[in-house]
């Protein structure tokens, strides 16, 4: 018989998992932004996250105030976005998407190497002033840090949603996502838009990097968070922000529940692959994710 404590424990695990999932969504949103507008799965998103977090923390360590460091890092990420558009995307225009994907693998190596060559390889502590103490809400112990992260994730989604639907450049983004040639035909400047999108993804990387960095410490392993975001994308579909959020929730919750209830039977450590298996099972039913656009093929 399940007693009351077990039920409570179950919900605690569930909520913890959902909140952890939103941390994955935060990373996944950066991918979606780029995928939607340029059709590239940007593997370097994790490296950008590492780069942003390392730059921010190093600036703070040199004595820059929080806000200045944030703005400066954002400016650097914009520069990075424009540089990537100029040196990687533009020469590869009109090449198969898989070529662009392989290029972003190379890009990930370049950014990771450069970030650590510039700022060193030691682990930096990052304190955002948010406590990681568990709070009791309706009888459940929940980390307040997780709640803040969840709020930031939802804030980001709302801001991006408003940006896409309410601003001119957002409208241009959607036009490009819809049909590149048509967008080009009505006079939208694709290179400019791509650079802007990469800069926006840089901003998302910065926000996600700060939250993840505060949790894990700013270090090389931050770039490996991509591997956590990818199953979320598989599940939610590469081109849907809503999918990134819902996918994150599902992956986070099922991963935590599996770790607690299934892990002991197989010796633990299953979090490295469990999310992929969940995502693959979903994909067998829906090959382009929960909210992904169906691919219509023409010969």
């Amino acid at each position: 018989m399940m007693d009351w404590h077990e039920v409570l424990f179950f919900f605690e695990v569930l909520v913890g998992g959902l909140l952890a999932g939103l941390m994955y969504s935060l990373v996944a949103i950066g991918f979606v932004l780029i995928y939607k507008t340029s059709g590239v799965l940007n593997f370097a998103q994790g490296a950008m996250l590492l780069f942003a977090a390392l730059t921010f923390v190093s600036l703070v360590n040199y004595g820059a105030p929080f806000l200045l460091a944030f703005v400066a890092t954002f400016a650097i990420m914009i520069g990075l976005g424009f540089a990537i558009e100029r040196t990687v995307l533009r020469p590869l225009v009109n090449r198969p998407p898989i070529t662009l994907f392989m290029a972003t693998l190379g890009l990930a190596y370049v950014i990771e190497g450069a970030a650590q060559l510039l700022w060193g390889t030691q682990v930096h502590r990052l304190d955002l002033g948010i406590s990681d103490k568990p709070m009791e809400i309706a009888g459940l112990l929940i980390s307040s840090f997780d709640l803040v992260a969840a709020a930031v994730a939802f804030g980001l989604v709302a801001a991006l949603g408003a940006f896409f639907t309410r601003t001119r450049i957002g409208l241009a983004f959607r036009a490009v996502a819809d049909d590149q040639f048509a967008a080009l035909a009505v006079g939208l400047r694709l290179p400019r838009i791509w650079a802007t999108v990469w800069a926006a993804a840089g901003f998302v990387a910065l926000v996600a990097g700060l939250l993840w960095g505060a949790r894990l410490g700013v270090q090389f392993s931050l770039s490996i968070i991509v591997l956590k975001a990818l199953p979320v994308l598989l599940l939610g579909g590469f081109d849907s922000i809503l999918g990134a959020v819902v996918g994150g929730l599902i992956i986070g919750a099922s991963e935590k529940l599996a770790e607690v209830y299934l892990g002991p039977y197989v010796g633990g450590g299953i979090e490295s692959w469990f999310a992929y298996v969940v995502a693959l099972l979903f994909l067998l039913v829906r090959p382009s994710g929960l909210f992904g656009q169906k691919i219509v093929e023409r010969v």
């Binding site: 190379g106 190596y109 370049v110 990771e112 190497g113």
Partner: peptide, 13 residues
């Protein structure tokens, strides 16, 4: 890492 990554991009281009 930097050089290998850059070479991969360069060759693809």
């Amino acid at each position: 890492r930097i050089v290998i990554g850059a070479l991969v991009i360069l060759f693809l281009i």
